[in-house]
Design a protein around this nucleic acid. Sequence first.
RNA 1: UGCCCCCUCGUUCAAUGGCAGGACCCCGGACUUUGGAUCCGGGUAUGGUGGUUCGAAUCCACCGGGGGCAACCA
Length: 565
Amino acid sequence: MDENATPTPTDFVRQIVADDTKSGKWDGRVVTRFPPEPNGYLHIGHAKSICLNFGIAREFGGTCHLRFDDTNPTKEEDEYVLAIQRDVRWLGFDWGEHLYYASDYFDQLHAWAIQLIQAGKAYVDEQTSAEIRASRGKLASRGVESPHRDRPIAENLDLFARMTAGEFEEGTAVLRARIDMEAPNQHLRDPVMYRILKASHHRTGAKWCVYPMYDWAHGQSDSIEKITHSICTLEFREHRPLYDWYLDTLGVYHPQQIEFARLNVSFTVMSKRRLLNLVEEDLVRGWNDPRMPTISGMRRRGYTAEAIRHFAAIIGVDTTESTVDVALLEHCVREDLNKRSPRFMGVLRPLRVVIENYPEGRTEEVDAVNNPEDPAAGSRKVPFGRVLYIERDDFMEDPPKQFFRLAPGREVRLRYAYFVTCTNVVKDPATGEIVELRCTYDPATKGGDSPDGRKPKATLHWVSAEHAVPAEVRLYDHLFTREDPDEVAEGQGWRANLNPRSLETLTGCRLEPALGDLPVESRVQFERLGYFCVDPDSKPGAPVFNRTLTLKDEWARLQKKGKTA
RNA sequence: UGCCCCCUCGUUCAAUGGCAGGACCCCGGACUUUGGAUCCGGGUAUGGUGGUUCGAAUCCACCGGGGGCAACCA
């Protein structure tokens, strides 16, 4: 997509950055970061954050770091690290040499922890996690101080050293910041800084027995990297006082945390926990299932990076929790695909048509425009013959008034070819099913125009039976049947709203020859049907297509409204 | 019965004390060798009540509604 078509967004985060740049608050530097935890694949919500962080860096001449927030070895895997990098790159962003891991900072973090202990600002607590949770107090009440809170500094130092050395079992001790058990903000009630985890870390292996908690790791990582604007989602707003406390207490470089509303999209779920659940329970075919709101899923589905970036630009950035209509995302994809997709003809549910007055054994080629939106795309030849396939939906034996397509005795245009008139309907005598149409064609209409000015009300797509490529086509619908998957009956979970018809696999489709050998991920339009792309499951001579999205369909709209009497 | 945050067309984002506007969506029409695309027109919004002000979506107060926070997750 033309970069000019996407206006540079203006939002409150960019406003802050612009103001800071102007005032010289950070010496004119702009450094942001995208800090995913490698415990799942990136989704469209992350895309919003990626576009925000990398976008701001690009617009203000700054840099954006990719930092893996890998502080929990029990949930994180290298597979995710690789997938995340691939997805960010595919989206069109580049972190240059600024690839970091929170685990790179474990030594520094540990040294800082000792510094806090020495300052009397942290202590080792040997209460159980249940005791700690209970003593932290309810939402409306205050917390109670740990019996270990006032233990001597030397003892804390010793205990923490032994925790680090692996002398204690998991769950037997933690290091806590010594702040205020009566703070109205729960996060300030002596938060845990380190817990004992005897798990192998994807990068540091068995080096550590203690791992930093998110709050302890995140702000300090920002500080080490000299981040200027640490942009995160709304749920971390109440963590900000803690973010600030750690940095201030340590007396180190202190970035500004800014929170924005995470993206929700209708008819899907966005939490990594739920997406992981769908994958693990085989409710979808993996993280990159085309029905998933993951970046890799959308990519496999045929969405373009440009469309996703444009979507991110127009939804804006705000502090109000909201759910964006999936139709807006789909609009962005259609808009982009309309401009760039070469057109072809493909028949999903074939109905055989014999042109009775067309000579047996004859074949000719007709000229077809590749993309009416792009004259530079040129044209191609499409073979035509006596036996064709058309879409079953394009014929009705007894059509309602609003049906413009083929019917007995009616003339329609075959796109780029000829006008044909249906003369007979052949049915299976046993089932009554229509198995073939007999038609005649008007040789004077070659190319699709009649010298006498006749204008059929419909133009149909078709393929020559002799030349057609057989294919599998996968049709997708929304993953959930409700705008809000959480809207469920008593006692039911979000999965009750999974759409049982989110995937429909069609075999025996017939495509024009040019579609037989396209590279994986090629994106095309099947005329009158929608946008499709080549799935990696394709084999030579046996392509598999995913339907990215349908075209808008006036006839389908009328049917849906029941106005087709 | 604590703390924090948020309420503008159906949805979403603008309007930074000065004519409430755009996009999506929906409806209707034009055009059309894709019932596509495109173009044109239409579509009951500032949660409520007070206050400040020449003037309030915007500032203040109260009320109402919604969301977040009680992992040794991030």
